[in-house]
Every structure is written in structure tokens, then in C-alpha cells.
Amino acid sequence: MREIKFRAWDKAKKEWIAKDFHLIGEIMMSGLLFDRSLERLNDIEIQQYTGLKDKNGKEIYEGDILVSYDPMEGEKITILEEDGTKKESVVTKEDLKYSERFVVSIEIRNGTLGIVEEGKWYQNEGSFENSEIIGNIYENMELIK
């Protein structure tokens, strides 16, 4: 069973106010945000841990921005040479310069984990074990524009 935990971003101050906390009803929320006035609670964005990790073992939260390549480093591929022969190869870091790069953000909608790519939400069909967190939508929005 995955661990249920959250992190919180203060939109007005543009800073993380809490990371890796567990939410237990309004009591924990009040304790976490005790120094925030009630009128400022709308400035707080709560993001949930997805239960997944990237290729470096870093926990993936809603709002994280990930990069993935197609094909992936270390993946076995078949190359069709100009003369029609096929050659087996393994993708290297150097090859990644020529592969397609996907940058997506993570979003949970109605309890379903998905990715947002070019403004469209897609239900997640796979894992993120070959992806890498490169930022988040609050501090690095330019990465997905």
C-alpha cells in the first residue's frame, strides 16, 4: 500500500511551507498552517504524493515536471540500415540527443493519476521509472511552455 503524504506551496510568498507531511483531517491542517491567516488559505496549494518514484528514486508529487525520452537510455532497439539490414543496438546517453523528449507535469483528477502534456490531461498508463523530475509547476513553469 502506498504512503499517503503531501507537500504545500504558498502561492503568495512563492515558497514551500511544508514537505512530506501527513494530513489527518483539519487538525493536522490547522497545525501545519497555524501561522497562516484564514483569508490566506486560498493561497496554499496542497499536492499529494503519487506513490511513484522517478529513475533516481525521487518521490513524484502532483505538480512535478518530468522529462522522459523515447527511446530510453539502455533500451534495446533495432536499427534499419540504408541497405535494408537490421542492426540491434542499445540506446546510449549520446543517442538521447536525437531522441524525442517528452516534458509533462503530474496531476491527479478525481482520484486518477495523469499527466498534462501541452495543456491536455491524459490518464497515466505506465510507470515513471525511466523519467526524471526536472522541476515543478510553481518554480519551473517555463519548462513546460
Results as ranks from 00 to 15, higher is better:
residue 109 R to L: 05
residue 43 D to Y: 09
residue 43 D to C: 07
residue 31 G to L: 11
residue 135 G to P: 01
residue 143 L to R: 03
residue 31 G to M: 08
residue 107 E to F: 11
residue 7 R to M: 13
residue 47 Q to A: 02
residue 95 D to W: 11
residue 110 N to G: 12
residue 84 G to K: 01
residue 29 M to P: 02
residue 41 L to I: 12
residue 140 N to I: 00
residue 124 N to S: 09
residue 143 L to H: 02
residue 4 I to M: 05
residue 57 G to E: 01
residue 20 D to W: 01
residue 116 V to M: 13
residue 80 L to G: 04
residue 34 F to Y: 15
residue 122 Y to T: 07
residue 57 G to V: 04
residue 126 G to L: 07
residue 19 K to V: 11
residue 59 E to P: 13
residue 35 D to W: 15
residue 11 K to P: 03
residue 47 Q to E: 14
residue 63 G to L: 02
residue 130 N to T: 02
residue 71 P to Q: 01
residue 145 K to P: 04
residue 112 T to Q: 15
residue 12 A to E: 14
residue 87 K to D: 02
residue 116 V to Y: 07
residue 133 I to Q: 06
residue 104 V to G: 03
residue 126 G to F: 11
residue 32 L to F: 06
residue 110 N to P: 07
residue 38 L to S: 08
residue 115 I to V: 07
residue 71 P to K: 00
residue 59 E to L: 12
residue 42 N to W: 10
residue 124 N to K: 12
residue 135 G to H: 01
residue 81 E to C: 06
residue 99 S to G: 03
residue 51 G to E: 07
residue 87 K to R: 13
residue 63 G to F: 01
residue 69 Y to C: 00
residue 134 I to P: 02
residue 141 M to I: 09
residue 16 W to D: 07
residue 63 G to C: 00
residue 107 E to K: 15
residue 126 G to P: 04
residue 40 R to H: 14
residue 63 G to M: 00
residue 96 L to R: 05
residue 72 M to K: 15
residue 3 E to Y: 12
residue 72 M to C: 14
residue 77 I to G: 00
residue 54 D to Y: 04
residue 83 D to C: 02
residue 47 Q to N: 07
residue 64 D to A: 09
residue 143 L to W: 06
residue 20 D to L: 01
residue 82 E to L: 14
residue 35 D to I: 10
residue 4 I to F: 05
residue 101 R to I: 09
residue 126 G to T: 10
residue 40 R to C: 11
